[in-house]
Amino acid sequence: MPVEWLNPYHLQVGSFLLINVLLGVSIYITLSTGQLSLGNAGFMCIGAYTAALLSTKCGLPIPAGIALGAVLAGSAGVLVGLPSLRLSGVYLAIATLGFGEVIRAVAVNWETLTGGAVGVAAVPQMGRVLLANLADAGFAPGDAGLRPNQFIALSVFLILLAVTALVIAFFLRLDRTRVGRAYAAIRLDEKAAEAMGIPVTYYKVLAFSQGAMVSGLAGALFAHSTSYISPEDFTYHRAVEILVYAVFGGSGHLLGSVFGAAALTLLPEALRFVSDYRHMLYGLLLVLMMIYRPQGVIDPPLLRRLHRARAEEAP
């Protein structure tokens, strides 16, 4: 008796939503030290290609490929972040934008490795691989009352959910520690932070590479959720989209970016006409947010108010 209401399409949308949430988290981390990166699509690209190529060409197990993809993207983050730190916000934004373009040019041109503009096909899909492995162990999805495609979509969704939850928990905790306070101090007043003994360069590179690493992780997971990647997935538009998540949702708190990513992924799903005008809407949204609510929909004072309201309701 299959569970009829479990719609693989909805699960797939949910999976993309989770990947976008990870991307939202990645830009939040960099922004939380006051750095604007337009290179997160590039880091995502590194993560995705690393994972995809390691599994298709070297036969590495998927989790190892994903981990290496994230680590490689994080290391690239150190390499880009370190020199860019001598630069003020605008220079950093453009240098990272340039970095993203260079990465994409490499992906398009290094055909023997990356498959060029066509991309990498037949990347093992997490859900299918899991199903195959379980089948070897004698499990059939029917045992759990699921059709195979339901099982595949559900397992991808659950894996992504677990990873995303872990990442969010990690950075929510980090926010409330000495390191998180240093990040916030740097964002609010770099000079004062330095005067208080915070090694600004160290923390900026740290945040930058953490952001790069999460982008890479999102890219690697993306590769193994779709089974096909191409340079088109990691254009400048993707970088802008990632930025919109944080700017719309609110870059002052991690949950803002999470909300932004979730809301802007679901919006085109809910409103068909929106999806045709999605990018125009993003553009308009950026301008309007900067004018009327530069801190984004969700900001710490709002969270505090919600918290207080809940506390008052409780007794």
Binding site: L36, S88, G89, V90, A93, H237, V240, L243, V247, H279, M280, Y282, G283, L284, L285, L286, V287, L288, M289, M290, I291, P294
Partner: peptide
């Protein structure tokens, strides 16, 4: 100073 950068990115996408 990032606000105007983001705002003009918005216009460019639009």
């Amino acid at each position: 100073h990032l606000a105007s950068l983001i705002s003009t990115i918005g216009v460019s996408i639009l």
